[in-house]
């Protein structure tokens, strides 16, 4: 990566879900392809490959980005969180738990991008209202649900996170 000559194949080192990972990739490989094909983290989905649908959204240094609109080599030295990295062992992340409780999803294809977008939202804004949730996920297309159940799941996640922060168990009813 420190090469000063343009190369068509490069080594890339990225922290993914807390673990250092390395791969040798074509320059044209997207971050999404690095995750899916080289690192076998297939939870990240490609829904359009031109940056509109949001299915491929991951966290880059804590903020959501489109992994189809980023080259793998651009992630050199950065930290990436994918849907596989949201849960803490067997304990679901609040957005996963909230979406489970509210039947948020149907086919599951847009799900990874929405979960990570929601996780970043709650990080930045722990008590969002419905309008803030809708705005936050407006770059993520879901074709199944009509969004209402997803909005409810994220609002429930905020409650779960608050309950956990207040020292209550976050398992919910």
């Amino acid at each position: 990566m420190s090469a000063t000559e343009p190369r068509t194949e490069l080594d890339v080192a990225v922290e993914v879900n807390g673990e250092p990972r390395r791969a040798r990739v074509e320059a044209r490989r997207s971050l999404a392809e690095l995750l899916r094909d080289d690192l076998e983290l297939t939870g990240t989905h490609l829904g359009c490959e031109h940056g509109v649908c949001g299915s491929c959204t991951v966290l880059l240094d804590g903020v959501p980005v489109r992994s189809c609109l980023m080259l793998a080599v651009q992630a050199e030295g950065r930290s990436v969180v994918t849907v596989e990295g949201l849960a803490d062992g067997d304990r679901l992340h609040p957005v996963q738990q909230g979406c489970l409780e509210r039947h948020s999803f149907q086919c599951g294809f847009c799900t990874p991008g929405i979960l990570l977008t929601a996780a970043a939202l709650l990080d930045a804004q722990p008590e969002p209202d419905e309008a803030a949730v809708r705005e936050a996920i407006s770059g993520n297309i879901c074709r199944c649900t009509g969004y209402e159940s997803i909005v409810d799941g994220i609002l429930r996640a905020a409650e779960i996170a608050r309950e956990a922060a207040d020292g209550h168990a976050g398992e919910g009813a």
């Binding site: 000063t4 343009p6 190369r7 068509t8 074509e26 320059a27 044209r28 490959e49 080599v73 050199e76």
Partner: peptide, 20 residues
């Protein structure tokens, strides 16, 4: 929907960028 092949370089200075 994949880009055509290309080469990539990430210089650490503006001069390096211009040089590339």
């Amino acid at each position: 929907m994949k880009p055509a092949p290309f080469a990539y370089v990430a210089p650490d200075s503006v001069e390096g960028v211009v040089g590339a």
